[in-house]
Design a protein around this nucleic acid. Structure first.
Lengths: 125, 125
DNA sequence: CTAAAACCTGACGCCAACGTCAGAGGCAAG
DNA sequence: CTTGCCTCTGACGTTGGCGTCAGGTTTTAG
């Protein structure tokens, strides 16, 4: 009579999360400290995570790469955790989007600049 | 008998460079310290620059924005100062170009990710 | 001549995302 | 049991491009 044996999700420890996401253990602890990635604790005090912690960490990495701070990410976490946002959060999302786009434009300009130099120095041995 | 009054280029002081390039005076001093922007000195010790210092500073800003360090820039300065490069420098140019391109790709991915969230939260009020 | 504005040289501060070290406990295998 | 790896909590160190303050000289405007 196994009445809905609620899919007892196997919990993983910090090392597995770190290896899975390709970051350091230290980084994962840091994310918890910043409120990005809360963890359960085993009786002995070890951190326990669900498997989706790995994809969450990957996502954080992507946002960090985009120049978002951990504070900004925590402020925006409800957006894709609950899928629901208020006006203020939607505004923040747009602001960050524009920041990223501006950064892309900067980088493309810099890349084009370097390409010029490369073209010159290649024809000018 | 002004025999070839060699186009006495008007030298400018640090404040003018800073205002012209839209950076702080401190930043310009820092560039000198890093070997990016050498300066002559007046008898009293004040830094004197040629006008093209302004465009050089703008260029540095662009490279900084692209993620190059001042050290990297100093190593690559000969490329567009003399227009001549050795194999090692050409290799460095390409490495930096690829770094920038990789960064652009990252940012575009992050932007697309945010766009997804924005689309969802907008249709999901 | 004088006061304001600009410049000088140190030298410490800052921020963000970790790295790294120390010292101590936890856990599976043989 | 013990060996070896994993984990824990602090807490200080790192990196880069400056900001900022202190205390003094120089240049410029009136």
């Amino acid at each position: 009579m196994t009445v809905a044996v609620d899919a007892a999700e196997r919990l993983i420890r910090i090392g597995e999360v770190a290896r899975g996401a390709g970051v350091s253990v230290r980084a994962v602890r840091y994310y918890e400290q910043q409120g990005l990635l809360p963890a359960e604790r085993s009786p002995s005090g070890q951190r326990l995570y669900r498997q989706d912690a790995i994809s969450r960490v990957r996502f954080f990495q992507q946002m960090f790469a985009a120049g978002l701070t951990s504070r900004r990410i925590t402020e925006l976490l409800p957006c894709w955790d609950s899928g629901h946002t208020d006006a203020e959060q939607r505004a923040m999302l747009r602001v960050e989007r524009e920041r990223i786009q501006a950064r892309i434009d900067e980088l493309q300009a810099a890349r084009d600049r370097l390409d010029e130099v490369i073209a010159i120095t290649d024809t000018h041995p």
